[in-house]
Design a protein around this nucleic acid. Sequence first.
DNA 1: TCAAAAGTGTTCCATGTACACCCATGT
DNA 2: ACATGGGTGTACATGGAACACTTTTGA
Lengths: 245, 245
Amino acid sequence: MPGPAVPEGYDKYAHEPFAVTADLAVLTVREGALHVLLVERGEEPYRGHWALPGGFVQPDESAETAARRELAEETGLSDVSGLHPEQLRTYSEPGRDPRMRVVTVAFTALLPDPPEPRAGSDAARARWVPYAEARPLAFDHDRILADAHERVGARLEYSSLATAFCPPEFTLGELQQIYEAVWGAGLDRPNFRRKVLATPGFVEPVPGAARLTGGRGKPAALYRAGTATALHPPLLRPTPEGRPA
Amino acid sequence: MPGPAVPEGYDKYAHEPFAVTADLAVLTVREGALHVLLVERGEEPYRGHWALPGGFVQPDESAETAARRELAEETGLSDVSGLHPEQLRTYSEPGRDPRMRVVTVAFTALLPDPPEPRAGSDAARARWVPYAEARPLAFDHDRILADAHERVGARLEYSSLATAFCPPEFTLGELQQIYEAVWGAGLDRPNFRRKVLATPGFVEPVPGAARLTGGRGKPAALYRAGTATALHPPLLRPTPEGRPA
DNA sequence: TCAAAAGTGTTCCATGTACACCCATGT
DNA sequence: ACATGGGTGTACATGGAACACTTTTGA
């Protein structure tokens, strides 16, 4: 039987118990291997487990703003101005967090040659972990991390995003290492070089500059990130198996 | 000077005034032109303006579930089982909604040959509007719609998504119209045909079936959507201008 | 003199593009 | 007959893959 009529204001849903967090998959390439920034949880649930950094979106913030703030807090980096967290997707399944209803807007962010992070306010510890050794993570962060990896790998093909992994000046060999670390596949060096240089706006040479990379071998010319954001033509990753090119 | 210490439970943020909505950019191709499903708002703010359909996510729902529910409610479609709303991105800027803090998870959904929608519970009216005539919309829905168009256009290149615009059996000419309507560019028919048929799992023929399309001309063979989701090789859209292929 | 890493050249083949042409149907 | 839309063939250019080769440095 129906209960008494309940008057409803337009703000009825304003008090549903939703919390919104911004979590980050912060990636870098260190010594040729993809790494992800993780924090050790200091509280229940999942106390002592590793998780992606992140935190609650404040009432006066967008999720993007919260992501940048959290990144600065949890990495201890003074300069996050050059970082551009990019939205990955939003995870909203009920039961993701055993405490309450949490909707998480996930972001990816890419860093060059990383400084060691220091533990921030919320996290007991923070460190760079090789991507292959990152799991298992707290909550549904395994899935978020996998989605981030797939997204970044795909975006390397069509955008100049790879330069976000590099320091201001870099060699083409270093740039190639980014691609190989993210894709997990070796690339032909001569062809990689030609394709990068043939893509307008991807990189621009630093005149006269050169640097020794491995301690041996010919010094490599240095390049800066160009102005293009999209790559024409794209730099396609090798087809995994017997797929028709 | 500091005030008295405020004890904080872990659920402090559970009562921040966040509301979460799922809004949809529902697209279809009708008579060769891209259309979007819009509803006329029956309440303030933006009363009488057109907006994307959507509504609040309930406490026991994911945003995906809410999107499907809203789609069924606002289109009056009995069969939304074949529809797969796909997450676009999340819009969380403060001030998006003048009433309260609203975080919107936006989705795209594609429909074949659309039935006329009927107005649902929340919407005064609902109708299909040609994409070019859709603006201006309420809230920040102009931006969401533009993002949806861009995303769908991009995904047509690498996924078999275009078949979601088509009825269960369709001709290659109809499929080509989907691409042309979304991309706003003409395609070479012989080459389109070859590329579609050369992509494994994109479409599969319906043996012996044929249909007249324009009332005149040779009857066209019919095809069904194949099992592939990703296209190898992709079906690239024509380069807009003087860009190096 | 050798190893290591950067940089250049060349060949082969898959794919995209443009366009000419034939086929089947309704008027 | 002819217009309309479906379907086939072909020639050319472009771009990627593979791999041989040269250059410059440190050990």
